[in-house]
Design a protein around this nucleic acid. Structure first.
Length: 387
RNA sequence: GCGCCCAUCGUCUAGCGGUCCAGGACGUUGCCCUUUCACGGCAGAAACAUGGGUUCGAGUCCCAUUGGGCGCGCCA
């Protein structure tokens, strides 16, 4: 291709040495010129070539006029050709540069649309010149803005740019991440939630904004919470099982979830999913299901039991044990009756139960916890705390 | 330094000359619901960067300033 451009007079050999090039660049910068290469070999005869120097081949770019790209998101972008210098097409070792290679490759592959980050916008101008020199049809271009970190600085490897697996490790659902991302820099009126089908249906280049968006974890988290709450219980169990090995290690949790654990998880899911924003939180909320007796109590739970809660647990234990039916409704009736007898608010007896059953001060509804845990396990845990 | 891009609530954004004393979402504040934590409901605070134009009329068009971003290799 480069040879062809040479033959057409759209390219030429350049014998400038690296030293000359850096000198040129420094001079250009000093004098405030945009062009870094001065085109010194542009019109020279090959006979003037210094002996023993392997030349590069540079594009003979137009000296005047403008290079224009009609970008689908940036609009019409114009460069004065006098500011664009003659780029290298072929290195002195004969290999093509990226600029030449992409153009030829895209053309050969029949690429119709070039959609990429706007950090390539300047490259687009130079590639445009190559397309023109070659007489090829230019693909439709769309340069979309980059995503920045929450502080407005650009995302880089050491600053917030995480791989996709990091988001999995944080417990974000793929659908939620996609939904969050599609709304970053693009909008469809006031619509916030999109199924994959809706995204495919509605997404368009025309509504992509031109300014960079900041990545906002709290909104991602909120959106993930929506997906969790709206998700089917079975799907969430499956998602958690699948993600389990990728979540950060945490003491006190099983390495994998066997069938019986999954069954418990499924039963507890309606109460759990309401309270979690990520799969990591979901797993944390479910930890009590997998805990081994006697439970380790956290500080708050211990405090609840120590400050009088233990008595209530002890009093309620026989009443619950006498229940014929282990249903949330039946248990609620018993506990409410007890609270009334003692002239207590429900919360005052529910909290001690919660502490004894889960080792925590927060959990799903206490009657659901009793139900999900089952009679034997529940009574066992309560009994543990009465001693 | 030079070139290009951008600029509405803290954040994501709607807005394509009058319907905007600027709408939605996240976050935030208060209240309600309530067995905890959440969910949910209701209410509130919160923005058109600045200065010039154009126009009967500008968040919407133009210019400048300021502030961000990206690019500037015989790297990709």
């Amino acid at each position: 291709m480069a040879e062809q451009l040479l033959a057409l007079g759209h390219a030429y050999h350049c014998y400038a040495s690296p030293e000359e090039l850096t000198q040129m660049r420094e001079a250009a910068r000093r004098e405030g010129r945009a062009k870094l290469y001065d085109g010194r070999w542009r019109d020279r005869d090959p006979s003037e070539a210094p002996p023993g120097v392997k030349p590069t081949i540079r594009l003979k770019a137009p000296l005047s006029g403008e290079t224009v790209i009609e970008d689908q998101v940036q609009g019409r972008v114009v460069w004065q050709n006098e500011n664009l210098d003659d780029l290298v097409l072929l290195r002195s070792d004969g290999t093509p540069t990226y600029m030449l290679a992409v153009v030829v490759d895209d053309h050969d592959m029949g690429v119709t649309h070039i959609i990429r980050g706007d950090d390539h916008l300047t490259n687009a101008a130079r590639q445009m010149q190559i397309y023109q020199a070659l007489g090829w049809q230019v693909p439709i271009m769309a340069h979309i803005p980059l995503i920045h970190g929450s502080d407005g600085a650009k995302l880089s490897k050491r600053h917030g740019a995480l791989g996709i697996d990091s988001y999995r490790a944080m417990g974000y659902l793929p659908a939620a991440l996609r939904n969050y991302l599609v709304r970053l820099g693009w909008s469809h009126g006031d619509k916030e939630f999109f199924t994959t089908e809706e995204m495919i249906e509605s997404f368009d280049l025309a509504h992509i904004g031109r300014s960079p968006a900041r990545f906002d974890f709290s909104k991602l988290e909120n959106m993930n919470g929506h997906y969790l709450r709206a998700g089917r219980e079975e799907d969430l169990v499956a998602a958690l099982v699948e993600t389990w090995p990728h979540l950060p290690d945490r003491a006190g949790l099983p390495k994998t979830l066997d069938a019986s654990m999954q069954t418990k998880l499924l039963a507890a899911m309606p109460g759990l999913k309401e309270r979690a924003k990520t799969l990591a939180e979901l797993r944390e909320g479910a930890a009590f299901l997998f805990a081994k007796r006697p439970l380790a109590l956290d500080a708050q739970a211990a405090d609840i039991l120590d400050s009088g809660g233990r008595q209530h647990v002890a009093s309620l234990l026989p009443r619950l044990a006498d229940l014929r039916e282990w249903t949330p409704a039946a248990m609620e009736a018993v506990v409410r009756a007890y609270a009334e007898e003692m002239n207590l608010k429900l919360g005052q007896v529910a909290q001690p139960l919660r502490a004894a059953l889960t080792g925590r001060a927060t959990s799903p509804g206490i009657f659901d916890v009793l139900h999900v845990l089952g009679r034997a396990e529940s009574l066992g845990r309560l009994e543990d705390q009465t001693r």
